[in-house]
Design a binder for these strands. Structure first.
Lengths: 332, 332
DNA sequence: TTGAAAGCGTTACCAA
DNA sequence: TTGGTAACGCTTTCAA
């Protein structure tokens, strides 16, 4: 790859001049400008971004740290981030943290060393003090650690109440909850939303809450046990769609028909919720849009523009599908 | 962030010495070494990777260019790549090409400018000449453009024959195929595998091949029309699992029971195939492993070690599940 | 065993 | 309107 020096030599001008036409600043005559452009084409010269980064101490690069790209929630989010970042000339480093603090720290270290301009984190195992030592802007997505950081999330607590109420509306009498990990804030909020609605019911006991760790396999096992012990359950609110698919599978294996004997609602609105059978009713977050918003915020932060909002909490939409489409549903 | 100069000043030695202890080469006395290490800790110094890259002309960074991370095949692949790369100290740039040549080219340009050490591409819209002008190593994954490039893929042609034969074994008499895009090599190979097995059948006409463009929605529509026009079809081989879910949905909406009236087999072995209802029989590629292998190859290439193999073609495994589990199945 | 200095490819300041 | 040059933070060669 040609360097600026070679272009200078080819044109017979100094590197300073080349730099000027490259960056379109400073005076340079039409004539030499044309010569330079010519030479650049001729040599297929493109500036070395590494050298530029060294000088400017910024790299047009951001980090996106997710728990696990393999979890179907995250690709949609990542795509939202990537599309916007790409439009604005940024490239993105991808890292999977597996919710492990040491992996997150490694990525954060890396990002400092590689002079990444900022980061979008979907994580909350890191303590916010460590994060504050970073001098680069950070946007938290999907989870909220701390109101000190710009954040994009959605309404978990109230939406979960809506989910449970929907189950009631379609006639469910005894509603269970498959909860996610206790260390993830949105998981706790969803559980609390559930509890808020059912806590005064005479039937309620916390045996109706079991842990599915936000994945389908654990949710499947947990549901199997739950339904065997509690045949009276006729509605389940799963903390995310992935776990809801586990619920669907468990019910099927137990010969329980959905939605007739058991109505099921998930949370997230991942695409997969459309392809299950029966199709899954879910509380849909605007996943792609959340990615986009986080990207826009981070760009504003990096480019030192004031933020319109520091905290986005998106509404969540109930999407009614077959898994709660009970025949004798109360009018609604 | 502290620089090497500040460490030098704090220790009272020259930057050259600091560099020596950092890289563990050249002579340096135990005593000064300890002092330096002390100071590094004190100042929380970590070398600036950008400066290092500028000198070494390599960056411990690779690009991973995929059609679309949102397609459930790719996250598993990406995860395989990322895990290995991460273990070896590389960070990865992620890019979605949407199968568009101009997007791919942009990423490739970017990678040259940012001095990326190499790339893993899941793409074939790029002509190989452009790729050859890159002086950085490239590994092709999932698709094979050209035998000039190191490649990781799986056995598409013969496995597709196996898929169709499986359908025959479970008693299907008239088998259709939902094909993928004509410009994707593995899609064509899968179709050809199907044709190879059925071309001599008296019933065969190419009306039994319809295009689902490797996505569920198009496959859904295509299957709807197909089954309406051809009620005699009792087996479908879908070119990938995503399209197979579309087939499942179409059959369900037409009141066709699976597998009794229609047996369905997919291709890929993505996780989603386990959660459909009925569960999907599929030809499973070792997706994660393919990602790992591509990563290992690229690292060898970058670090100038000879490649054990330049071309990996992994076997594909038939996973029998409910969607082809016909009762009166011939013994097998 | 250590230090000085050139060089990696840019940019931007100051002079001309 | 242009050029020379220091600087960005590091590595490595050469000399001491």
């Amino acid at each position: 790859m040609a360097t600026i020096k070679e272009v200078a030599k080819a044109t017979g001008v100094s590197v300073a001049t080349i730099s000027r036409v490259l960056n379109n600043n400073g005076y340079v005559s039409e004539e030499t400008k044309n010569k330079v452009i010519e030479a650049i084409k001729e040599l297929d010269y493109r500036p070395n971004e590494v050298a530029r980064s060294l000088y400017h101490k910024q790299s047009k690069t951001i980090s996106l740290i997710l728990p696990d790209i393999t979890n179907p929630f995250f690709p949609e989010l990542a795509r939202g981030v990537e599309d916007i970042m790409n439009d604005h000339g940024y490239t993105i480093f991808l890292g999977n943290s597996d919710e492990k603090a040491n992996k997150e720290e490694r990525y954060l270290d890396m990002m400092e060393q590689k002079h990444v301009d900022g980061a979008i984190l979907a994580t909350n195992t890191l303590d916010s003090n460590h994060l504050k030592t970073l001098k680069k802007p950070v946007v938290i997505i999907d989870r909220s650690i701390n109101s000190d950081f710009p954040t994009v999330c959605s309404e978990n607590f109230h939406s979960s109440q809506d989910a449970v109420r929907h189950l009631k509306e379609v006639g469910c009498k005894v509603i269970a909850h498959i909860e996610g990990p206790a260390h993830i804030t949105n998981s706790v909020l969803r559980k609390n939303g559930y509890i808020e609605v059912v806590k005064k019911e005479s039937w309620f006991t916390d045996e109706y809450i079991v842990n599915g760790h936000y994945n389908d396999k654990d949710a499947y096992q947990a549901t199997l046990t739950l339904l065997k012990n509690h045949p009276e359950i006729d509605g389940i609110f799963a903390g995310n769609d992935l776990m809801a698919t586990g619920v669907l599978k468990a019910a099927r294996n137990l010969g329980i028909s959905i939605p007739e004997q058991l109505a099921v609602i998930g949370f997230d609105g991942i695409r997969m919720s459309e392809i299950t059978s029966p199709e899954l009713t879910t509380m849909a977050q605007p996943i792609y849009k959340m990615g986009e918003t986080a990207a826009y915020m981070l760009i504003d932060l990096i480019e030192q523009r004031p933020l319109r909002e520091r905290y986005y909490k998106y509404p969540v939409q109930l999407i009614k599908r077959q898994s709660t489409n009970v025949q004798n549903q109360s009018i609604n």
